[in-house]
């Protein structure tokens, strides 16, 4: 929408400063991962070393199970969110029914309400139902707030898909299943993938709901929270943090790329 009008310098400055504010802190994480000083956050960093990467890799066996658990939880939660989110999106798109407008509200509630509420609500429900805390209680918690991400992406795609494509398919003699397979799924495939990527990133990072729905299990963010509260080797925490940034960076970029020439930009629904 730039129309050749001159941009006030104050606006440029505010935008630039705002973006700097958003991104500089992450650079410091990277910088401190190479710090030889592991007792404090002294700046400028007195000495640089790369040894923490090998320490994190070799000498900290507590990291690996946490990472594996996080990946497993995120994969299953994403799978559940993909199914539930696209079903809900299809229902809202195809039909009018009583309470349709409330569906979005219901779906967005688990991320619009603070995580502690979702967490403590699920925890007390599990307690009341005498379900013991396990891998699956973590998954249930994560899937609950991941649904909305998939729903938003798929619904946005559905709304741009012409409904008459489906009618045309039916008129030409395809049955419902064939229409689903040859028309609907190819149309929403990238939206599903983008939604799935974001759901994965969301679950992989989640710490609050996990605190309440996990028993003894330790996901990577829970491990990290422990390190923040009682630091053992600060730079190792930084190394893991850099790794976490990298591992969430990839799905986010992919999701962005998958929805790049559409208006339904993947992340706006978080």
């Amino acid at each position: 929408m730039s129309s050749g009008k001159s941009t006030p310098w104050a606006l440029r400055l505010a935008t630039f400063a705002g973006m700097l504010f958003l991104h500089l802190p992450l650079l410091f994480i990277l910088l401190y991962a190479f710090s030889a000083e592991d007792k404090s956050f002294v700046f400028p960093i007195p000495e640089f070393t790369a040894k923490w990467f090998s320490v994190a890799w070799n000498d900290r066996p507590d990291i690996w199970p946490a990472l594996a658990l996080s990946v497993k939880v995120a994969l299953i939660a994403t799978l559940i969110a993909l199914v539930l989110g696209s079903l809900a999106a299809a229902a809202v798109w195809r039909s009018k029914f009583f309470g349709r407008d409330s569906i979005s509200l219901l779906l967005i509630l688990p991320i619009a309400l603070p995580g502690i509420i979702t967490g403590i609500a699920l925890r007390s429900a599990f307690n009341l139902a005498e379900i013991s805390f396990s891998f699956w209680t973590i998954v249930v918690g994560h899937a609950t707030f991941c649904v909305v991400v998939v729903y938003n992406n798929v619904l946005a795609r559905f709304r741009r898909t012409a409904g008459n494509l489906i009618e045309a398919s039916m008129d030409l003699g395809a049955n419902g299943l064939q229409t689903l397979r040859h028309i609907v799924l190819p149309n929403i495939a990238t939206a599903l993938l983008a939604g799935g990527m974001l759901a994965f990133a969301l679950s992989f990072d989640e710490v609050v709901v996990t605190t309440f729905t996990a028993g003894q299990q330790e996901t990577l963010p829970i491990w990290m929270l422990g390190e923040l509260m009682r630091p053992r080797q600060r730079p190792v925490t930084n190394v893991v943090a850099v790794f976490v940034i990298a591992i969430t960076f990839i799905p986010i970029m992919l999701a962005f790329w998958l929805t790049r020439d559409t208006q339904d930009v993947a992340g706006s629904g978080k």
């Binding site: 992450l26 990072d205 940034i245 986010i252 962005f256 978080k270």
Partner: peptide, 26 residues
């Protein structure tokens, strides 16, 4: 993209970044 990346990147990592920026010796 510059807005989306921090939005989706790890909450804990981003809080932690400020811990070291705001530290007294930081």
């Amino acid at each position: 993209l510059g807005v989306m990346l921090p939005l989706w990147s790890s909450y804990l990592v981003r809080v932690y970044a400020w811990k070291l920026i705001l530290a007294k010796e930081g």
